[in-house]
């Protein structure tokens, strides 16, 4: 791998490390406190809010899991994430392909449209959208919410995928076209496989956004059995605002899945970003 900086230089990297370690403490310190507090008893947090726990109170997790109804809400959030990611990748990928590789008449206007769409304040259309969803029977349903998530997350996904696809060499496509392949085949068989790190990036960004989304989930899902992990945490944190150990345990549980997925895919994720760039 090419090293753009520093090679063959006498400059010491020590100052770099000093600053980076300081930033590291800034970024991870609060998180570490949260994780440590999640295994302390409530009484111990009062006396020792920052240090290592004396006793590990693992029962915080069991209690938070049960009281927060996480066994239901985790599944619900997972379903919403899966639906939204698939939707954005398939539909957004198709649009990005069209914008990047096909001679779409009015591509500029479409880009502008997507930019405008993605910049409209959610509060502007929340109530009319709610009325519409009630009218067509999509309220209180995962399908209904997934459609909204797809719509709101697609523009950024399309921008990312488009710029990724723009960087792909045309050789393969041209060869396929000469062989008489249809656009769908070129898309599905050539462009998607070549740009799959980009898809992974977009998938992670969308998964993150949906897993963490609060406002729409509370407004559009009213049935307690359909609650997402974030709404149950919000209610939970309000209810147990004094019980820092319990709320910390709940917080750790709800960030754990997304963290694990991120850590597993981080190489591809960052690679996707590196190669795709983020050109508008």
């Amino acid at each position: 791998m090419n090293r753009p900086f520093g090679r063959g230089r006498d400059l010491s990297l020590t100052p770099n490390y000093v600053v980076l370690v300081a930033l590291l403490i800034f970024s991870l310190g609060p998180l570490a406190i949260m994780v440590l507090n999640s295994v302390k008893s409530r009484a111990e947090i009062g006396e020792n809010p920052l240090g290592l726990p004396n006793d590990f109170e693992w029962s915080n997790y069991a209690r938070a899991w049960e009281v927060g109804n996480f066994s239901t809400t985790m599944v619900n959030s997972g379903l919403l994430v899966a639906g939204s990611v698939v939707g954005v990748l398939v539909l957004g990928g198709m649009a990005a392909y069209s914008l990047a590789k096909l001679n779409l008449s009015g591509a500029g206007a479409l880009m502008l449209f997507l930019l405008v769409i993605s910049s409209l304040p959610i509060h502007l259309f929340l109530v009319p959208l709610f009325v519409l969803w009630r009218e067509i029977g999509l309220l209180n349903s995962f399908v209904g919410l997934v459609i909204i998530y797809i719509a709101l997350n697609a523009p950024l996904g399309i921008f990312l995928l488009r710029s990724y696809m723009l960087q792909l060499p045309r050789d393969f496509e041209d060869a396929a076209r000469v062989d008489g392949a249809g656009e769908w085949q070129i898309f599905a068989r050539i462009v998607v496989p070549l740009s799959w790190p980009g898809f992974l990036t977009v998938g992670l960004v969308v998964a993150l956004a949906v897993w963490n989304e609060f406002l729409l989930a509370t407004v559009f899902l009213q049935d307690e059995s359909k609650f997402t992990v974030i709404t149950s945490y919000q209610n939970f944190a309000t209810r147990f605002s004094r019980d820092w150990s319990l709320t910390s345990a709940a917080a750790v549980m709800m960030i754990l899945p997304i963290l694990v997925i991120f850590l597993i895919f981080q190489r591809r994720f960052i690679e996707g970003m590196t190669q795709g760039g983020m050109k508008g």
Binding site: V127, V131, E135, T218, V219, Q222, D223, F227, T231
Partner: peptide
């Protein structure tokens, strides 16, 4: 009966749609 968190907000939006 149905348990409804944030009942008033849910009620308002539902009433707005005639439900």
């Amino acid at each position: 009966p149905r348990l409804q968190p944030n009942r008033w907000q849910a009620t308002q939006t539902a009433l707005a749609a005639g439900e």
